[in-house]
Design a binder for these strands. Structure first.
Length: 671
RNA sequence: GGUGAUGUAGCUCAGUUGGUCAGAGCGACGGACUCAUAACCCGUAGGUCGGUGGUUCAAAUCCACCCAUCACCA
């Protein structure tokens, strides 16, 4: 490791604020979160940002359908997406929105730079127009009969039956999906980005970025076909940013979306002394910037985006990492098969470490699709994680706790063996760095096998029967626990929740990668609690069953088990935070409700609380309460409630808010 | 339709530049053990590497064609 930490900015693709996070999305977030966590664990200065992608026609249409403003829709969905991602351990340094002041300023700044550099021109094009809705229609909003194979009800850009591609005006009997009327073709002036002028720059960038073979061969393909200029404008009505100097032209969502990476980073820079926006984004920045994306958006991230950055006088990304898609049981996710699984559904029945591990065990640096085979998932997680990995701790900790009062020996039993585990650190690190997670998992599990064999060979359960060998039992179990601890440090990027529990078990301070090489000796450990529990196939079945019908919208969570207890995992899913009441007011038309605006440190939420009879609004402002930060947002008659505040009592006047001792600040996690 | 990717033991996958490359884990089966969340340890199983044809002394590994699955086509 170099003395000076690397400065790294990592992004995940922005989730579109039009739907729920599902297992497919999670491949990307878990992959990039793991990488960012690895860099941080190694002591690098790594920042990981993301944002909600909020603009475009689909969001405008959906908001209309729900009879709300687009702003309300994107705020609700964005909060829900962030909560889901955080529940899976995805730890952004910042999750922002493309519908922000920062983003608009950056988009305009970049557009003006592009314009000044001669990279923008206008051209009149013809486009489908819905006269009843008074709006231009994107290709996907026109349907009709395929001109080639005559299949009915096909989208305006391609036929799903015969695979033909065409433009909407070639469709037979085209109709607008918004009104079922026949669209007309109207002319409109559009703004174009001169992508074709950047071919040489992009070729040059492609070499420097050392893109994965699969991506660069794709790019070569596109270069050979010749780059086409890019239509970056859309006509009103459109939900997005208006192009300066125009009345009714808006930036296409795909222009402002990647700028959202910058906006989220800028938003964070303004709150952090150790981050300087320009130092990362100036054309000659020495820092590293990486985008993790899915293979479906390679075009945008390896052509448009670097070209737009270059054209606006900024630096290009250091590299772009693309992953494949997720299949479940070998097939595309499907609602009828129950394999279109939302993150939220998963959380109700299964823990998140298991999925993180399974994905890691399958992920490599390439663009190949990965398969979540549910039977294999259960077998693999139970065998690898519970059977061999956690088992090491489980079989050693008992002796230490019961026989030695939790006291670890002062030395190791087998320094050489420990040394073998330490010697793998560089190889594991290199595999993480190269996103060869599957290889890293394989390597770590091979070590776990080795640790189990070591214990098997020493047989502490026999030694304990002989008073003369009592000290050796302590040595062997100290050895075993330290082998386990080293492995858990290696796995911390993938299994942050289990790593955290392990760290606490040993009473360590925050782990760094190098700690894996230094055994913990002579210390008293906490009482061992199960770090993970086996998965029952019934849990997976429950997820499938629940996913089969239309996603149960905001159904109260079914109890996850028959038992009256919850696991530590279950509890950890509830994100309790200290919140400061910024504003409180009665809700018109509701007898019991107060509308609270809560400050959660990094965000503000609107929450409705049934405490009107017990608390005067004015008395609440400024005080701290405990809020559930990841409760699914709920649409109420008066607006969306984005959480709940904790209170005790039967209700009515007898309701008592929980508070925290002085010193606590808004945003602190309760645990 | 064009382009590209993938197709290796029941399952999930490794196999750098062609010659110990026919492998691992899981499952299954047999045995041992009982510290551990029926976990762990030892052993067995044995797929003509999607198909056909070709190049080569030698191909899962190169070429051609075919089949299947998947993706992209701004």
């Amino acid at each position: 490791m170099s003395a000076e930490p690397r400065k790294i900015l990592v992004t995940s693709a922005l989730p579109y604020a039009n739907g729920s996070i599902h297992l497919g999305h999670l491949v990307e977030y878990i992959q990039s979160d793991t990488w960012a966590r690895f860099q941080k664990l190694r002591g690098e200065h790594c920042t990981y940002v993301c944002a909600s992608d909020t603009h475009g026609t689909p969001i405008m249409i959906r908001a209309r359908a729900e009879n709300i403003e687009p702003e309300q829709l994107i705020e609700r969905i964005g909060a829900e997406q962030l909560a889901d991602l955080e529940a899976f351990g995805v730890a952004f340094d910042n999750f922002y929105t493309t519908h922000s002041e920062e983003n608009e300023q950056l988009v305009v700044r970049m557009y003006e730079a592009l314009s000044a550099n001669g990279h923008i021109y206008t051209k009149t094009i013809e486009q489908a127009y819905d006269e009843t809705k008074s709006m231009f229609l994107p290709d996907r909003f026109v349907k009709g009969t395929c001109p080639r194979c005559r299949s009915e009800d096909q989208y305006g850009d391609a036929c799903e039956v015969c695979g033909a591609t065409y433009t909407p005006d070639e469709l037979i009997d085209p109709v607008s999906v918004l009104s079922d009327t026949r669209p007309v073709w109207r002319e409109s002036e559009h703004y174009f980005f001169r992508l074709s002028a950047f071919t040489d720059d992009l070729r040059d960038w492609m070499r420097r970025a050392a893109l994965h073979q699969n991506i660069s061969s794709k790019l070569e393909e596109w270069f050979e076909a010749g780059l086409q200029d890019w239509d970056i404008s859309r006509d009103a009505p459109y939900f997005g940013f208006r192009i300066p100097g125009t009345e009714d032209k808006y930036f296409y969502v795909w222009l402002d979306a990647p700028v959202g990476y910058l906006a989220s980073f800028l938003h964070l820079c303004r709150r952090r002394d150790d981050l300087d926006f320009d130092a990362y984004w100036d054309a000659d920045s020495p820092h590293e910037v990486y985008h993790f994306i899915g293979k479906d958006i390679v075009y945008f991230h390896t052509l448009f985006w670097p070209a737009v950055l270059k054209g606006s006088g900024m630096r290009e990304p250091t590299s772009v990492f693309a992953h494949g898609f997720l299949t479940i049981n070998g097939k595309k996710m499907s609602k009828s098969r129950g394999t279109f699984i939302n993150a939220r559904t998963w959380l109700r029945h299964l823990d998140t470490s298991s999925l993180r591990y399974y994905y890691a065990a399958k992920l490599g640096p390439g663009m190949d699709d990965i398969d979540l085979s549910l039977d294999d998932f259960v077998a693999r997680v139970n065998a690898d994680l519970v059977g061999k990995l956690v088992n090491i701790a489980s079989r050693c900790a008992g002796f230490i706790t019961k026989q030695f009062d939790g006291q670890l020996a002062e030395r190791l039993d087998d320094e050489d063996l420990f040394g073998e585990f330490v010697a793998e650190a560089d190889a594991v690190a290199a595999e993480y760095e190269g996103r060869e997670y599957s290889k890293a998992m394989r390597r770590v599990m091979a070590l776990a096998d080795r640790a189990n064999r070591y214990i098997e060979a020493r047989k502490p359960w026999l030694m304990i029967k002989d008073a003369a060998q009592r000290d050796d039992v302590q040595l062997v179990c100290t050895q075993g626990l330290n082998l386990f601890r080293t492995l858990m440090i290696y796995l911390a990027p993938v299994l942050p929740a289990v790593a955290e529990r392990t760290r606490a078990l040993f009473g360590d301070d925050a782990w760094r990668w190098a700690d894996a090489a230094a055994p913990v000796l002579g210390r008293r450990i906490d009482k061992y609690e199960a770090l993970l529990t086996r998965i029952d196939p019934k849990q997976v079945n429950a997820v499938i069953e629940e996913s089969k019908e239309a996603p149960a919208a905001a159904q109260p969570a079914a109890t996850t088990t028959d038992e009256a207890t919850v696991s530590i995992d279950d509890f950890a899913r509830v994100d309790l935070r200290v919140a400061r009441v910024v504003a409180a007011e009665p809700v018109e038309g509701a007898d019991k409700l107060l509308r609270l605006t809560l400050d959660l440190g990094d965000s503000r939420r609107q929450v409705f609380a049934g405490i009107k009879a017990a608390y005067a609004p004015d008395a609440l402002v400024g005080r701290h309460v405990i809020a559930v930060a990841n409760l699914a947002p709920r649409k109420m008659r008066f607006g969306v409630s984005e959480g709940m505040v904790l209170a005790a009592g039967p209700g009515g006047e007898d309701i008592f808010l929980l508070s925290v001792d002085s010193g606590a600040e808004a945003g602190m996690r309760v645990k």
